[in-house]
Design a protein around this nucleic acid. Sequence first.
RNA 1: CGGGGCGUAGCGCAGCCUGGUAGCGCACUACACUGGGGGUGUAGUGGUCGCAGGUUCAAAUCCUGCCGUCCCGACCA
Length: 569
Amino acid sequence: MRLTNLPLNTLKEVPAEAETLSHQLMLRAGLIRRLASGLYSWLPIGMRVLQRIENIIREEMNRAGALEVMMPIVQPAELWRKSGRWEKFGPELLRLEDRHQRKFCLGPTHEEVITDIARHELKSYRQLPVNYYQIQTKFRDEIRPRFGVMRAREFTMKDAYSFHIDEESLLRDGYEVMRSTYDKIFTRFQLKFRIVQADPGAIGGNRSEEFQVLAESGEDKIAYCDADDFAANIEVIELEPPNKTRGLPTQTCEIIKTPKIQSIEALSKFFKVGPEKCLKTILVQGSKSPAVALLLRGDHELNATKAERIDAVASPLRMLNATEIHEATRCEAGFLGPKELDISIYMDQDASLMSDFVCGANRTDYHYRGTNWGRDIEPPEIIDLRNATTGDPSPKGGGPLSIARGIEVAQIFQLGKDYSEALEATVLDDQGKKRTIEMGCYGIGVTRIVAATIEQNHDNRGIIWPAAIAPFDVLIIPINLDKSCRVREAADTLYCNLIDAGLDVLMDDRSYRPGVKFADADLLGIPHRVVVTESAWDKGKVEYKNRREDDPQLVPFDQLVELLRDKGD
RNA sequence: CGGGGCGUAGCGCAGCCUGGUAGCGCACUACACUGGGGGUGUAGUGGUCGCAGGUUCAAAUCCUGCCGUCCCGACCA
């Protein structure tokens, strides 16, 4: 591809809409353009990256014996009613009507459709196991799309669904095969990632793991222990009761005026104590009552899944807003506490170990300090309510956990029979008896991988593509090609040679000054750069530089192809 | 959904408070110079100032409503 044939508009300035680095670089390098909130067009260079990613996924999926299909994006409500998800899925599911007022939705995922296919196509245990996959557009009407294609409403996903006669086959021929296939795929993408235990969430099912690309900007937090190989999303870690006892009271409980001190941070500053000495009181919607109070240590985070397990708490979990908090407590948010609070209260294990702590007084602008369980407040019911954090013991016993941030790029589930039962997908077994099919499902966020890759591979000048998914293998930059027909001829020869050698070649034949071309080269991040100048060419040489290296080297023209092969992935 | 910010040329922004000729930088076009890290000059192209209503002799500017977009959302970060 010659750049004179590819309208490329790189931006010097950072578009105001872009928050994260990957988003900024994707816009600046001309990979994507935003059409509306959470909706992006992929321009030629971005499209090439997507295709490379898709091709690697296809190769590995096919190698694992999976079968590619394609299912409609628009799906009938009827099917979703059968699985129960028409009601269960929230406003994320975009619902629409056709001209006959029949109801449809845009597929956020395809369990229903694939199960319907399985129900019609799979009749005998002898046809199992089978794994269907597709690479296709999904739509989820996210509350708040953000970070460009990282959390978009429309996105490309590779989703696979496997069907098995029993759980053993599901685990062995489905789940484990996909797990190792994904491992190969992400290794080929040259990403640093971890496989972590995950919450099965909205998709349903039993066992589930996520593939998390490690990045500071990641939305997920993962906990790991290098000593015993444990790794999990912090949401799913069950915490044992702490092996400690509560400190004895040393202070008297007194009420203190704390005007406008409404955050743990402010409290901790005001009282000059650490956040672990402040009690956090969170009001959530109750299942039978308007409000339920949850107590946590100030430095801990509430775990939504754990909270939802409490019968008295409404599911899905919803925090009360300022008005509701006032109705329930006659007091402003920020001054809530368990003392004389007349609603159901649950407290986290670690909160129960606090002593001489600060908590709200249920009176606007007042807090208690020197509060102690038993003496000042009857302790409420104690349960595990919080997310794991740095230093918590690994459930496998190897030592303390560390926390890292990750971008979820894939998730695999043992679905079991939820969908096959609801949609009556059965086969006959070797006894001629009807058996409900066991299912697994396996997703990869294709478009999100592009963003995740850039998060992990960039410098202050631009993107640095891993060779496997770069839009092009080599970029040729002829210097002064308008003035020198020798440079033009040399570049053309080189261009043809590299293409003949099977490489994807981009040539910057625009009549710009070198600086512009170098800057664009760095921004675009193509792995290999070859500069053609008159003086080097006269010696039969060209200049080679890897995007990751600082210094170029002169290479004899006839050795270039070989060098690129060696340096290739 | 709630709170806040922003909508002025393709992009980044100023002008708005205090109403009176719509501006700057980048990009784009032409020409000249320049030619190894986003160069210089000259001349240009490009705007229903988000939309609708109102106030006024006069509205990008003041008022009302709507729309779009971004950020934030619990004593979370």
